[in-house]
């Protein structure tokens, strides 16, 4: 085995010659090591999801054992039946779906308009407004939560409009948190659509708003769908505001599922079954539509 190039000799000058590898050999070794490392990372990434699904098929005794297994030793699907009767889980799911879907619709609508303005027009104060959009991402939730609690309670008492523990209260609250994020993402998509198309539509007698809804939005549909998915997820995952402002009547899944953990014991099998029902369909959807979502995330993130 001879060193293949002068630089290799220099780099490995201290290594005994019989341990030196050829260039091809070293490439092979590096490839093998990096595939192995990637494999380990994937195991780390997927392990909790694996355990979630596997434990959802285990009876209680197989979860609460000092010798837990990676796959169920017996197939025990009854968790999927029993979980529905312990709490109004159907209601929690429905609440979450209503809140998250309404939030998605409202924020996509509001954010599309704003994103279009940022993408196509130049106006005084633009950079300051853009900055405030970004700034909202830095606000700690508790800072908003205390005044929001007061606002909701006081609107209820003094105006008579119930806000706490209502769908519209949560949807309004969540939309505001997701709108800045959606503006930022949608703007990237709108930027990729050539302006000439709208100009042509305008010449054909389309209004400004008409051009946005009839030309730009249909073209940006994949991006809007990807943004919608993230908005939906954000609303679905929220716990801070939901735990204080939506813990009754409209209890979302993210709060309700914690009830499997009672003072005396935790119904792990059923909790994991409920988790699987919430997680797996969403992951499948993501895997199917992965391309526009990932493309959207990285649009314009780095200047070419």
């Amino acid at each position: 085995m001879l060193g293949s190039a002068g630089t290799d000799e220099a780099a490995e000058g201290r290594v005994p010659s019989e341990l030196r590898l050829t260039k091809a050999g070293r490439e092979l070794l590096v490839t093998a090591v990096s595939r192995f490392a990637l494999g380990l990372i994937l195991v780390f990434a997927l392990f909790p999801i694996w355990m979630m699904v596997m434990n959802s098929f285990k009876p209680r005794s197989a979860v609460m054992t000092e010798n837990p297994s990676l796959v169920p030793r017996t197939f025990h699907p009854s968790n999927y039946v029993e979980m529905w009767s312990r709490f109004p889980l159907v209601e929690y799911f429905t609440n979450s779906l209503i809140i998250a879907s309404a939030t998605t619709v409202v924020s996509l609508l509001v954010a599309s308009l704003a994103a279009y303005a940022f993408s196509r027009y130049d106006f005084p104060g633009k950079s300051k407004l853009e900055l405030s959009i970004l700034g909202t991402q830095m606000i700690p939730g508790v800072l908003i939560l205390l005044p929001m609690y007061l606002l909701f309670i006081n609107v209820q008492i003094h105006v008579g409009l119930p806000m706490k523990d209502t769908y519209h209260g949560l949807v309004f609250l969540y939309s505001t948190f997701t709108v800045p994020f959606a503006i930022w993402m949608l703007r990237g998509y709108f930027d990729t659509i050539p302006e000439a198309l709208e100009e042509a539509a305008r010449i054909d007698g389309c209004t400004r708003l008409g051009a946005l809804f009839r030309v730009v939005m249909p073209l940006a549909a994949p991006g809007i769908a990807a943004t919608g998915m993230f908005v939906f997820l954000m609303a679905f995952n929220e716990v801070l505001f939901a735990s204080v402002l939506g813990s009754e009547n409209v209890t979302p899944f993210a709060i309700g599922i914690q009830q499997f953990e009672t003072q005396s014991q935790t119904y792990w099998g059923q909790m994991m079954a409920a988790s699987t029902v919430a997680t797996v369909p969403l992951l499948l959807l993501f895997v199917l539509f992965q391309k526009p979502i990932v493309a959207g995330l990285t649009t314009g993130s780095v200047k070419e």
């Binding site: 999801i49 997820l233 995952n237 993210a254 988790s275 919430a278």
Partner: peptide, 12 residues
Amino acid sequence: VLIPWIAPAVPA
């Protein structure tokens, strides 16, 4: 590799 980021947070 993106799955941990996509999976709903509370169940995870």
